[in-house]
Design a protein around this nucleic acid. Structure first.
Length: 207
DNA sequence: AACATGATCAACT
DNA sequence: GTTGATCATGTTT
Protein backbone atom coordinates (compact mmCIF):
# COMPACT_ATOMS: atom_id res chain seq x y z
CA UNK A 1 0.00 0.00 0.00
CA UNK A 2 1.23 3.46 -0.92
CA UNK A 3 2.29 5.62 2.02
CA UNK A 4 0.34 8.83 2.16
CA UNK A 5 0.92 11.56 4.67
CA UNK A 6 -0.17 15.15 5.28
CA UNK A 7 -0.18 17.46 8.28
CA UNK A 8 1.26 14.70 10.48
CA UNK A 9 -1.64 12.48 9.54
CA UNK A 10 -0.87 9.05 8.15
CA UNK A 11 -3.52 6.56 7.12
CA UNK A 12 -3.46 3.61 9.49
CA UNK A 13 -6.37 1.19 9.44
CA UNK A 14 -5.25 -0.30 12.73
CA UNK A 15 -6.35 2.99 14.34
CA UNK A 16 -9.86 2.80 12.86
CA UNK A 17 -12.70 3.17 15.35
CA UNK A 18 -14.74 -0.01 15.73
CA UNK A 19 -18.49 -0.52 16.07
CA UNK A 20 -18.37 -0.14 19.83
CA UNK A 21 -17.41 3.51 19.48
CA UNK A 22 -20.46 4.30 17.34
CA UNK A 23 -22.82 2.32 19.59
CA UNK A 24 -22.37 4.69 22.50
CA UNK A 25 -24.69 7.51 23.48
CA UNK A 26 -25.25 9.85 20.50
CA UNK A 27 -23.99 12.99 22.24
CA UNK A 28 -20.83 11.16 23.30
CA UNK A 29 -20.22 10.06 19.72
CA UNK A 30 -20.89 13.54 18.32
CA UNK A 31 -18.31 15.08 20.64
CA UNK A 32 -15.94 12.16 20.28
CA UNK A 33 -15.81 12.45 16.50
CA UNK A 34 -14.27 15.93 16.66
CA UNK A 35 -10.58 15.78 15.77
CA UNK A 36 -10.87 12.32 14.22
CA UNK A 37 -10.34 11.69 10.53
CA UNK A 38 -12.86 10.52 7.95
CA UNK A 39 -11.12 8.24 5.45
CA UNK A 40 -12.68 7.15 2.15
CA UNK A 41 -10.96 5.21 -0.59
CA UNK A 42 -12.48 5.54 -4.05
CA UNK A 43 -10.96 4.24 -7.26
CA UNK A 44 -7.64 3.66 -5.49
CA UNK A 45 -7.47 7.24 -4.22
CA UNK A 46 -7.80 8.34 -0.62
CA UNK A 47 -9.89 11.27 0.54
CA UNK A 48 -9.31 12.25 4.17
CA UNK A 49 -10.45 15.14 6.35
CA UNK A 50 -10.41 15.92 10.06
CA UNK A 51 -13.91 16.32 11.47
CA UNK A 52 -14.34 19.74 13.10
CA UNK A 53 -18.13 20.17 13.43
CA UNK A 54 -20.97 17.76 14.24
CA UNK A 55 -24.59 17.71 15.39
CA UNK A 56 -26.39 15.05 17.44
CA UNK A 57 -29.90 13.88 16.50
CA UNK A 58 -31.37 11.99 19.41
CA UNK A 59 -33.67 8.94 19.60
CA UNK A 60 -35.97 10.50 22.22
CA UNK A 61 -37.48 13.96 22.64
CA UNK A 62 -35.89 15.37 19.49
CA UNK A 63 -38.57 16.39 16.98
CA UNK A 64 -35.93 17.50 14.51
CA UNK A 65 -34.46 14.02 14.24
CA UNK A 66 -35.51 12.33 10.99
CA UNK A 67 -36.29 9.20 12.99
CA UNK A 68 -38.87 11.02 15.14
CA UNK A 69 -41.64 10.14 12.63
CA UNK A 70 -40.89 6.43 12.95
CA UNK A 71 -39.15 4.16 10.50
CA UNK A 72 -39.65 5.02 6.81
CA UNK A 73 -37.84 4.18 3.61
CA UNK A 74 -35.71 7.31 3.87
CA UNK A 75 -34.59 7.04 7.48
CA UNK A 76 -34.31 3.24 7.67
CA UNK A 77 -30.51 3.34 8.13
CA UNK A 78 -30.99 5.28 11.38
CA UNK A 79 -32.70 2.25 12.91
CA UNK A 80 -29.79 -0.08 12.28
CA UNK A 81 -27.06 -0.63 14.84
CA UNK A 82 -24.49 2.17 15.02
CA UNK A 83 -21.52 2.25 12.67
CA UNK A 84 -23.13 2.74 9.26
CA UNK A 85 -23.83 5.69 7.00
CA UNK A 86 -27.15 7.52 6.67
CA UNK A 87 -27.25 9.88 3.67
CA UNK A 88 -30.22 12.04 2.72
CA UNK A 89 -31.00 14.44 -0.09
CA UNK A 90 -32.19 17.90 0.89
CA UNK A 91 -33.50 21.07 -0.75
CA UNK A 92 -33.44 19.33 -4.12
CA UNK A 93 -29.72 20.00 -4.35
CA UNK A 94 -27.58 18.72 -1.50
CA UNK A 95 -26.64 15.51 0.23
CA UNK A 96 -25.84 15.32 3.94
CA UNK A 97 -24.00 12.48 5.65
CA UNK A 98 -24.67 11.10 9.09
CA UNK A 99 -23.08 8.40 11.18
CA UNK A 100 -25.67 6.12 12.78
CA UNK A 101 -25.25 5.69 16.53
CA UNK A 102 -26.44 3.53 19.45
CA UNK A 103 -28.26 0.22 19.09
CA UNK A 104 -30.55 -1.35 16.51
CA UNK A 105 -34.07 0.06 16.67
CA UNK A 106 -33.15 3.34 18.38
CA UNK A 107 -33.21 5.83 15.48
CA UNK A 108 -30.39 8.34 15.96
CA UNK A 109 -27.30 9.65 14.23
CA UNK A 110 -24.61 12.31 14.11
CA UNK A 111 -24.58 14.80 11.23
CA UNK A 112 -21.08 15.61 10.01
CA UNK A 113 -21.20 19.33 9.24
CA UNK A 114 -17.62 20.31 8.44
CA UNK A 115 -14.08 18.98 8.17
CA UNK A 116 -10.53 20.06 7.48
CA UNK A 117 -9.30 18.50 4.22
CA UNK A 118 -6.04 16.57 4.64
CA UNK A 119 -5.55 14.36 1.60
CA UNK A 120 -7.08 14.08 -1.86
CA UNK A 121 -7.64 17.80 -2.18
CA UNK A 122 -7.25 17.60 -5.95
CA UNK A 123 -10.14 15.16 -6.20
CA UNK A 124 -12.25 17.09 -3.71
CA UNK A 125 -11.70 20.24 -5.77
CA UNK A 126 -12.92 18.50 -8.89
CA UNK A 127 -15.96 17.13 -7.06
CA UNK A 128 -16.75 20.56 -5.67
CA UNK A 129 -15.72 22.58 -8.73
CA UNK A 130 -13.93 24.86 -6.27
CA UNK A 131 -10.28 25.19 -5.26
CA UNK A 132 -10.68 27.11 -2.02
CA UNK A 133 -9.23 24.63 0.49
CA UNK A 134 -10.88 26.42 3.38
CA UNK A 135 -14.30 25.76 1.91
CA UNK A 136 -13.95 22.30 0.35
CA UNK A 137 -15.64 20.53 3.29
CA UNK A 138 -17.29 23.52 5.00
CA UNK A 139 -20.98 22.80 5.51
CA UNK A 140 -22.75 19.41 5.32
CA UNK A 141 -23.71 19.75 1.65
CA UNK A 142 -20.21 20.73 0.63
CA UNK A 143 -18.60 17.99 2.70
CA UNK A 144 -20.76 15.29 1.12
CA UNK A 145 -20.05 16.67 -2.34
CA UNK A 146 -16.28 16.81 -1.78
CA UNK A 147 -16.29 13.15 -0.71
CA UNK A 148 -18.72 12.11 -3.45
CA UNK A 149 -21.36 10.73 -1.09
CA UNK A 150 -24.91 10.24 -2.37
CA UNK A 151 -27.99 8.31 -1.24
CA UNK A 152 -26.49 5.26 -2.94
CA UNK A 153 -24.04 5.12 -0.04
CA UNK A 154 -26.74 4.53 2.56
CA UNK A 155 -26.03 1.61 4.93
CA UNK A 156 -22.30 1.61 4.11
CA UNK A 157 -20.19 0.34 7.00
CA UNK A 158 -17.87 2.85 8.64
CA UNK A 159 -15.64 0.02 9.77
CA UNK A 160 -14.23 -1.08 6.42
CA UNK A 161 -10.97 -0.42 4.63
CA UNK A 162 -12.80 1.69 2.08
CA UNK A 163 -14.55 3.84 4.65
CA UNK A 164 -13.60 4.40 8.28
CA UNK A 165 -12.94 6.92 11.01
CA UNK A 166 -9.34 6.99 12.21
CA UNK A 167 -8.40 8.06 15.70
CA UNK A 168 -6.17 11.13 15.56
CA UNK A 169 -6.27 14.31 17.60
CA UNK A 170 -7.14 14.31 21.29
CA UNK A 171 -9.19 17.27 22.47
CA UNK A 172 -9.42 18.96 25.81
CA UNK A 173 -12.89 19.74 27.10
CA UNK A 174 -12.11 23.43 26.56
CA UNK A 175 -11.46 22.87 22.86
CA UNK A 176 -15.11 21.96 22.18
CA UNK A 177 -17.84 24.60 21.81
CA UNK A 178 -21.49 23.58 22.23
CA UNK A 179 -24.34 25.54 20.60
CA UNK A 180 -27.83 25.19 19.17
CA UNK A 181 -28.12 23.30 15.90
CA UNK A 182 -28.26 25.00 12.51
CA UNK A 183 -31.11 25.21 10.03
CA UNK A 184 -33.86 23.47 12.00
CA UNK A 185 -37.21 24.63 13.32
CA UNK A 186 -38.18 21.86 15.74
CA UNK A 187 -36.45 21.19 19.05
CA UNK A 188 -34.23 24.12 18.13
CA UNK A 189 -33.46 25.00 21.73
CA UNK A 190 -31.43 21.83 22.30
CA UNK A 191 -27.67 22.34 22.55
CA UNK A 192 -26.49 19.56 20.26
CA UNK A 193 -24.02 21.21 17.87
CA UNK A 194 -20.35 20.76 18.65
CA UNK A 195 -17.27 22.22 17.01
CA UNK A 196 -13.55 22.71 17.59
CA UNK A 197 -12.92 26.17 18.98
CA UNK A 198 -9.90 27.21 16.98
CA UNK A 199 -10.72 25.66 13.62
CA UNK A 200 -11.17 27.92 10.58
CA UNK A 201 -12.89 25.03 8.80
CA UNK A 202 -16.09 25.28 10.88
CA UNK A 203 -19.14 26.76 9.12
CA UNK A 204 -19.66 30.44 9.78
CA UNK A 205 -23.17 30.93 11.07
CA UNK A 206 -24.87 34.24 10.45
CA UNK A 207 -26.87 34.88 13.61
C1' DA B 1 -45.61 23.20 2.18
C1' DA B 2 -41.54 22.19 4.28
C1' DC B 3 -36.94 20.77 4.19
C1' DA B 4 -30.49 19.08 9.23
C1' DT B 5 -28.18 24.02 2.33
C1' DG B 6 -25.30 26.89 -0.53
C1' DA B 7 -24.31 30.22 -4.36
C1' DT B 8 -25.07 34.66 -5.95
C1' DC B 9 -25.86 39.41 -6.04
C1' DA B 10 -27.18 43.95 -4.44
C1' DA B 11 -26.54 47.24 -0.94
C1' DC B 12 -24.24 48.64 2.74
C1' DT B 13 -20.20 49.66 6.26
C1' DG C 1 -15.80 42.50 4.17
C1' DT C 2 -20.43 41.78 5.60
C1' DT C 3 -25.43 41.18 5.54
C1' DG C 4 -29.75 40.04 3.79
C1' DA C 5 -32.88 38.64 0.00
C1' DT C 6 -33.61 35.36 -3.48
C1' DC C 7 -33.39 31.21 -5.79
C1' DA C 8 -32.21 26.47 -7.30
C1' DT C 9 -34.45 21.99 -6.98
C1' DG C 10 -36.19 16.74 -5.58
C1' DT C 11 -38.40 14.27 -1.93
C1' DT C 12 -41.35 13.82 1.84
C1' DT C 13 -45.57 14.92 4.40
Amino acid sequence: MKIVEKNNFKIDYSKALNENFFRQDTKTVAKGLLGKVLVRKIRNNYLTAKIVETEAYLPDGDLSCHAAVGKTQRNAPMFEAGGILYVYFIYGVHHCINIVTELEGKGCAVLIRAAEPLMGLDIMSVNRKNNDVNKLCKGPGNLAKAFGFTVKDNFLSLCSKNLFIQDFQKNNKNDIITTKRVGINKSKELLLRYYLKDSSFVTNIKK
